[in-house]
Nucleic acid binder design. Structure first.
Lengths: 192, 192
DNA sequence: CTGTCAAGACACAACGTCTCGTCTTGTTGT
DNA sequence: ACAACAAGACGAGACGTTGTGTCTTGACAG
């Protein structure tokens, strides 16, 4: 009935819930994690979870953004290709970390039937990183290393989409080699 | 105990189940479809479903491949860019069909926690289409329209991944414009 | 003293297994 | 060829189990 009062919220319970959710996701596929399991592990009443979160995906999303990978920066050595390679390789490394891959796959799967989660993923995970990459690409455009008549947002998509494609469609493993391939194809073009 | 005998399987029940599954997926998100609901709609015992399929995703996968889009061909007018544009636009149209988009999203979401479904999607949906595109690209390479030092499989990924990226990450809507953008970027390259 | 907390009871829904009695299908005996 | 038969898939639904989301209780903290 009456909405909960955030001022009186227990920070201890909140952390316990986020920690428990992350732990359980490491031990089993995201689909197998339950609200009851999280409550049990966290030593918390179910009501306390339902009071603050609408779904387990929402918990995981907050847990991940809370332990924000920290710095979140984009290298700038002056060599755009080298900078992209190092940043994209970071993503490859993350996708090959079983835990991180599980988080991503689980969240994106949940997003397919939950628009709020989809919006949350874009806003808190994707967009900040895309924006950094766009900034770097704009500098490269001004430096004359990248064509100026292209929308940096489209370039980001062209570069990173193939990584997500393999992660989610399970066609081929995501490897460091793929980064080199993507960069070669997208920079010089496929036209003869 | 004893495995079921496919020779004695009722084709009527099989079709009723596939039809019911498709119907229900059109009426609600895939996550809301249940085995019991399918059985009810199909006028079928639950055991009959569990005897032949391991999960609802497996049913949907078979239902889709059964109503195979039929022809499944890749145009060849001699103009590789025009051919790619028309075929990719077909994918865009499919992704914008609410029903088809729901199927795809639901299946791919299920694939994130079910390796068999993932393998099934790749084998029966993705791969045949990728192979056709590869064939067409190889012709274009021989005709001198596309660089010969590139693996056609990588090119297919570069072209189609951005479509799936938007479909699954929900960043921007999948539009016909996107096809033009992808073709422009990937053919001429982003390097200045 | 008001509202969150931990704990768990509660009704509900779907799961996957099972048990019926019926119907279909392929085999066998005449 | 054709009936009688056995094997097994069928529709229906009961069953125990599990997770859902809400509600109740008493303790405790702001």
């Amino acid at each position: 009935m009456t909405p909960p009062n955030p001022d009186r919220r227990s920070e201890r319970a909140r952390r316990a819930i986020l920690d428990a959710a992350l732990e359980l996701c490491q031990e089993q596929p995201f689909a197998g994690v339950t609200m009851e399991g999280i409550a049990k592990r966290a030593g918390v009443g179910k009501q306390t979870i339902y009071r603050w979160w609408p779904s387990k995906a929402a918990i995981l999303l907050e847990a991940i953004t809370d332990r924000g990978t920290g710095t979140l920066d984009f290298p700038d050595t002056g060599d755009i290709v080298a900078d992209l390679r190092s940043q994209m390789s970071e993503v490859v490394r993350a996708f090959n970390d079983p835990m991180f891959a599980a988080y991503n796959r689980g969240l994106i799967a949940a997003a397919q039937s939950d628009p709020e989660i989809a919006a949350g993923i874009v806003k808190t995970i994707i967009e900040p990183r895309v924006d950094l990459c766009i900034e770097r690409l704009e500098k490269a455009q001004q430096a004359g290393a990248v064509r100026r008549d292209l929308d940096p947002r489209d370039i980001v998509e062209l570069l990173y989409a193939p990584l997500y494609y393999r992660l989610l469609l399970h066609t081929r493993p995501v490897t460091p080699d793929q980064v080199d391939t993507i960069l070669k194809l997208s920079f010089t073009g496929i036209e003869a």
